[in-house]
């Protein structure tokens, strides 16, 4: 479970200070599915990075299961990321020289999983996203949708508690978008994940049970009764 209290994040841009997050209070329960919306520069990606332990708040706290991520050392934070948090990025962020299977394996490297088990788990993860036939393909040999499936498999292969997705369908066409959303929904349901997704897409937001909107660093959360 996430508990954010009075979380702020300021950036310096030249002589100016920009408030990316201006005091966020937010609770995300285990197994929750939250969609974050808002205009560009509103602080969506910054909030996601705070949740993922990729960045630290300027003030306030970001607690995951009672542990304030802001107070952890870099190595502890790295460990939390490697064990508990899966990321899916808008531009897939696959290693271009590694095959689909090897890309998925990179998520298991910090967990010191033996090579053979790594290969097996990666193959199973790819099979679960419908890419059993593409294990040996390089990212350049896959379509955008397939690349994002590889990225989803990479995020889920370590069986994390949390899945954070930053515009996962932003680079995909409509049919691919639906395909990927189906995969993500299935995974969320099957794995009992806490799923936080940033998106500009209103149709996706419309299906989410909770939608948070970030404007100028301030958050408002709405329950979606129609979902």
């Amino acid at each position: 479970m996430y508990e954010l209290r009075g979380t702020t994040k300021q950036y310096r841009r030249g002589k100016k200070t920009v408030d990316a997050l201006a005091g966020i209070d937010l609770t995300i329960a285990d197994g929750d599915r939250l969609v974050i919306q808002g205009p560009t520069g509103g602080g969506k990606s910054t909030l996601l990075q705070m949740l993922g332990g990729l960045d630290r708040p300027t003030s306030g706290s970001v607690e995951l299961d009672g542990t304030d991520l802001a107070g952890l050392s870099e190595s502890r934070l790295t460990k939390v990321r490697s064990e508990n948090i899966g990321f899916v990025f808008q531009s897939f962020n696959l290693i271009p020289t590694l095959t689909a299977q090897e890309n998925v394996e990179t998520a298991l490297v910090p967990l010191k999983v033996k090579a053979r088990e790594r290969r097996e788990r990666a193959a199973a993860a790819l099979e679960s996203v419908g890419l059993a036939e593409r294990l040996g393909h390089l990212p350049a040999e896959l379509s955008g949708g397939q690349q994002q499936r590889v990225a989803i498999a990479r995020a889920l292969v370590k069986q994390p508690k949390v899945l954070l997705a930053d515009e996962p369908t932003g680079n995909l066409d409509e049919s691919m978008r639906d395909e990927i959303m189906d995969v993500l929904d299935t995974m969320w349901k099957e794995h009992g994940l806490t799923f936080v997704m940033v998106t500009h897409d209103s149709s996706i937001a419309g299906k989410a049970p909770r939608v948070a909107t970030l404007r100028k660093g301030r958050i408002t959360v709405k329950e979606n009764v129609n979902s």
Partner: peptide, 16 residues
């Protein structure tokens, strides 16, 4: 940069 940033996000330590 993106490649290494991604690996670090996945939990790769700086040393690795």
């Amino acid at each position: 940069v993106r490649e290494f940033g991604t690996l670090k996000a996945l939990g790769w330590k700086s040393g690795r």
